[in-house]
């Protein structure tokens, strides 16, 4: 035990308060400094894209200030949004992403529930194994996968290569392991008594999952959904390798392959396409962020 002596002559309290507030001020200054750097770093490219997308091709190639639009025009937007090809890419991307998110959630949520709660032989090893598969990069996988699909096509006659739906098989190899891992973490944070209470109330495993775990772990499911959507929306390598016909392409690959003709870069439309492509994830983030942050588990147990 230490004894506390109060020296009445020294203005202890005042000095302490002052140093506290000085510490805080400095901490805030540094925070804002680095936040500002970070904001500039990450916002410069989209702003440059926005500026460029509002210029005509002539203005882009002219030697004027690249950070200012002198003759704003929407011709790039009109050009892309009236082009059937671009709308096709957008449509393909949307369909692929929605399917992939659905498939991923249908697989990873029950898988995570089983791995987190139904303690069966080898469940912990399996849980680690699921995470390890996520660590294998796609650059290592695409050649053997391509070969596999080619062989399957030869044997069964089912043509998978150069079809957009091949992506529905490929993307989950990236999204399922990670989403399962996220959901294992969320499910593990739910108190054990909650499923015991449900079991005693007469719920089956399936009912415990659908009526208790999914609603309680909703923030986690939102997080996993956002992740799966972002991955499948932005995926570039697999669609570049596995799809080639213009009607099968998704947006990231479509923009690159159709708007770059030889060494001619249609910069205005490339920037516009990239901006329009970035819109859906942004909108989804904006709407789901509140759910994501809201702590739904509050009040389940003591506290």
């Amino acid at each position: 035990m230490t004894t506390v002596t109060i020296d009445k002559t020294a203005p202890t309290r005042k000095v302490k308060y002052g140093s506290m507030s000085r510490d805080r001020t400095w901490a805030l200054r540094w925070s804002y400094f680095f936040l500002a750097i970070f904001a500039i770093f990450s916002l410069t490219p989209p702003i440059y894209m926005l500026i460029t997308s509002l210029k005509s091709s002539a203005e882009i190639s002219a030697a004027t200030n690249p950070w200012w639009v002198f003759h704003p025009t929407l011709e790039n937007y009109v050009g892309l949004l009236t082009s059937n090809q671009f709308l096709r890419f957008f449509w393909n991307s949307a369909i692929v992403s929605i399917f992939v998110v659905t498939i991923t959630m249908l697989i990873s949520v029950p898988a995570a529930f089983a791995l987190a709660r139904m303690r069966f032989w080898g469940s912990t090893v399996l849980a680690t194994g699921v995470f390890l598969t996520y660590l294998i990069p796609e650059t290592l996988l695409f050649i053997p996968l391509f070969k596999m699909f080619a062989v399957i096509g030869d044997w069964s006659g089912i043509q998978l290569i150069n079809r957009w739906y091949v992506l529905l098989i490929l993307y989950p190899t990236l999204t399922v392991p990670f989403c399962t891992w996220i959901m294992i973490g969320y499910f593990a944070s739910i108190p054990k008594e909650l499923d015991e209470a449900a079991i005693i109330d007469g719920a089956s495993w399936f009912q415990t999952l659908t009526r208790i775990f999914i609603p309680v772990a909703f923030p986690g499911i939102i997080a996993a959904t956002i992740f799966a959507f972002t991955v499948s929306w932005a995926q570039f390598l697999y669609p570049l390798v596995f799809t080639t016909s213009t009607d099968q392409l998704v947006m990231p690959v479509g923009i690159i392959t159709t708007l770059i003709k030889g060494d001619v870069f249609n910069w205005g439309q490339i920037m516009t396409g990239a901006l329009l492509g970035a819109a859906p994830p942004l909108i989804i983030y904006a709407f789901l962020m509140d759910y994501y942050i809201a702590g739904l588990t509050a009040g389940a147990t003591k506290g």
């Binding site: 008594e193 015991e196 609603p215 588990t297 389940a300 003591k302």
Partner: peptide
């Protein structure tokens, strides 16, 4: 049977 748990185990949602 019915059980009452130490940490209540109410369904939060």
């Amino acid at each position: 049977i019915a059980m009452v748990f130490q940490n209540y185990a109410l369904y939060p949602h």
